[in-house]
Write a protein that binds this DNA or RNA. Structure first.
Lengths: 206, 206
DNA sequence: ACAATCCATTGATTTGAATCAATAAATAAC
DNA sequence: GTTATTTATTGATTCAAATCAATGGATTGT
């Protein structure tokens, strides 16, 4: 019961130095627990995203669908924040699908609750600012990666930084996250493992 | 003199409902007027961006340099906000160059002044949040455009939404903003004007 | 007004990745 | 455990855009 709010509470306390138990319980009242089963959709294009969610456990993913082609923008795993933030902020329809890759539990703050907090709970504006800033930094890094790095470089980075993701997500979704076709990612992988093999048997260096 | 702060004052008052003259003059004290001449650089990779600026007049542009190739991320014109926001927020070195395309005057808020405002001026946190949110929405739209639209679609959109920019900026910079080479943009343009000519002379329709 | 430089256009060629296609491997369903 | 379905690999072909190259036009500086 209170268990479900344990992680999200820790999360908010870390961002919110002046948060006390009174304010927290005021805030916690408005939180909503949501469960989703693998294979379902959380959000579709045209719908307005109405909450910011903390993921207790599970894995979801957002993607554009362009000419029948999926373009994955992000994976969201446990202990992080999920939202279609652009839609949430602008109150305009999402362009993204969000589907559930593993059974997932989230703690939602809906738009009205957040506005209520901004008006009534001290220092909540600061949390809103910090969250917006963090999400900006993340989006900016993703943007830089798409513009500056090759799909192969991006794949290697994902391998290093999110090795668990590679195991939990089908390869064709990783491909669409990297901005290439499944065939292309397969070839990237074989190129990499070929290079690694050559390094071991030492055909060219020295 | 006070003239220089006229536009930025209007800008902040529009975001900041409770802003009064006292708080404004407290804030204005810390603003810095900066002038830049065409052809100079405001920021280079490795430098940390230390301010958020309101552009009184002028035009600047930010770009990545990858393998000797410029990739323009944004143009910033008068009456809007300029920053390398990612660097500013994270206090980490910029990956971008920012150069001055037209003589420019900016009103800077530096990082420390902003932190001071957050601590001491009521409701300034809200302005920080709103700015962060607006910048997120803009970046997100740019991202969606790069992922979902063709260079040609992006060009047509720029033509419609920022026709003045096309006139003020060399075509090869527009090309790098669209994510193509100058040659490719030239061909896009000739394709478009050919199509328009065909529509007028009516070779195929009806 | 002139030269010099920068920029835009156009054509020919190359290239990297998408598409098409077939097979193999892995996973899910029964 | 077997079949069916989905996913991954590999090869052949196609395609769109980058590169290379040359010319013409525009802008800048003196």
């Amino acid at each position: 019961m209170g268990d479900k709010f344990e992680k999200v509470k820790t999360f908010y306390f870390s961002l919110w130095p002046s948060l006390n138990e009174d304010n927290w319980s005021e805030f916690e009242k408005r939180l909503i627990v949501k469960k989703y089963e693998k294979g379902n959709y959380i959000l579709r294009p045209g719908e307005v995203c109405n909450c910011i969610s903390f993921i207790n456990y599970g894995l979801v993913r957002s993607y554009y669908l362009v000419d029948g082609r999926e373009i994955t923008t992000n994976f969201f795993v446990e202990d992080s924040v999920f939202s279609n933030y652009q839609s949430f902020l602008s109150r305009t329809p999402s362009l993204l699908y969000t589907d559930v890759l593993e059974d997932t539990e989230m703690i939602d703050v809906d738009y009205d609750s957040l506005q209520y907090a901004y008006e009534n709970i001290p220092d909540s504006e600061r949390v809103g600012r910090l969250v917006a800033e963090q999400l900006y930094i993340l989006l900016s890094a993703r943007n830089a990666s798409l513009l500056m790095e090759s799909p192969e470089q991006r794949y290697i980075k994902v391998l290093q930084e999110k090795p668990d993701l590679i195991r939990r997500v089908p390869q064709y979704m990783v491909a669409s996250y990297l901005g290439v076709t499944p065939e292309a990612l397969s070839r990237i992988r074989s190129r990499i493992s070929k290079r690694n093999a050559e390094l071991l048997t030492d055909t060219s260096s020295r």
